[in-house]
């Protein structure tokens, strides 16, 4: 099967700032998760493959054709931007209807498709309201609606779950998954691992404008597992707590700070169990228990410095 998106040696920079560096990828049918911390280059990549930006070096092909010289390809593409942008004076219906119409459909088809998309994202009852009166989550759903309304073969979603409540989060994930079942292609970006995990196992890891890894999500899970975690324990009985932690195999190092101690471990869950056990057994009063580096940024930092 021919790839839906092909990028070759793609580079993009903004003045002195690098956006994407020498990225070569092929993406076929199914859901592809684009995972990376904020500022990693995810949005730049998505803007490049939708023709929003022009690459400094490299080429982009969609459905086998170069995008800049074939703008009609965009009829088959749906794009949901990351930012909360909309036309203030439009109603939800007008917004979707206008954009479907601009995709080349006639008035009747545009009305049908707009209504159908609004139903899909649960905004049919608020379709006649001005968008500026929508909540943040509703506006996010509306942006998704405009990207799916014309039933594109390639759906590109930049942080689609941002600001969406948990119920709609699941529904949107189901909408995205339904595209996969139809044999279509979805590229979805997020900086939150479990969001991507809920949609797909096929991911691209991106950081500092470079593709770090591509493949199964279990790979990143393993990376996270091998990454030493820091657990901060805020307590006035630091010595008592340290006494219980020292020489335990779960603990890599212990550092004392002003109001507690920072413990480094390779097995976060086991360490948390141990701390809980010590709190009970030694009757230690713990005011705060946090994991300051439990995020993708920390994992990437660890991996790049390794």
């Amino acid at each position: 099967m021919s790839p839906v998106v092909e990028v070759d040696k793609l580079s993009k920079w903004y003045g002195n700032i690098l956006g994407i560096v020498d990225v070569s990828l092929t993406i076929g049918a199914g859901i592809k998760g684009l995972l990376g911390p904020n500022g990693a280059g995810k949005s730049t990549f998505l803007k490049l493959i939708t023709g929003q930006l022009k690459p400094n070096i490299g080429t982009v092909k969609i459905f086998g054709l170069p995008l800049p010289s074939n703008p009609q390809l965009l009829t088959r593409v749906g794009y949901c931007p990351e930012y909360d942008s909309y036309y203030r004076e439009m109603t939800g219906f007008e917004f979707i209807y206008s954009l479907v119409k601009l995709s080349g459909y006639d008035s009747r088809e545009s009305v049908d498709k707009a209504n159908q998309a609004l139903v899909e994202v649960g905004l049919e009852e608020r379709a006649g309201d001005l968008i500026k009166h929508y909540s943040l989550g509703m506006r996010q759903r509306l942006r998704i609606a405009q990207s799916i309304a014309h039933h594109p073969d390639l759906l590109i979603l930049d942080e689609p779950l941002k600001g969406v409540d948990p119920i709609w989060r699941n529904k949107i994930i189901n909408i995205i998954k339904s595209y996969q079942q139809q044999g279509k292609t979805v590229i979805v970006s997020s900086h939150i691992l479990h969001e991507i995990e809920a949609m797909t196992e096929d991911i691209i890891l991106i950081n500092q404008g470079k593709v770090f890894a591509e493949g199964d999500i279990h790979y990143i899970r393993d990376l996270i597992k091998s990454h030493p975690h820091k657990i901060y324990v805020k307590t006035e009985e630091s010595r008592k707590m340290a006494g219980g932690l020292i020489n335990r195999e779960e603990v890599l190092s212990i550092n004392f700070s002003d109001q507690g101690l920072m413990v480094e471990t390779l097995d976060r869950d086991k360490l948390l169990d141990l701390i809980a056990q010590l709190i009970i057994e030694k009757n230690i009063e713990v005011k705060e228990l946090t994991s300051p580096d439990d995020n993708l940024q920390a994992v990437f930092k660890y991996l790049t410095e390794r």
Partner: peptide, 14 residues
């Protein structure tokens, strides 16, 4: 300014 340009440039329009 309103960041709405992407809605137009992501359509099959010159």
């Amino acid at each position: 300014d309103d960041k709405t340009l992407c809605y137009l440039t992501s359509r099959p329009l010159s």
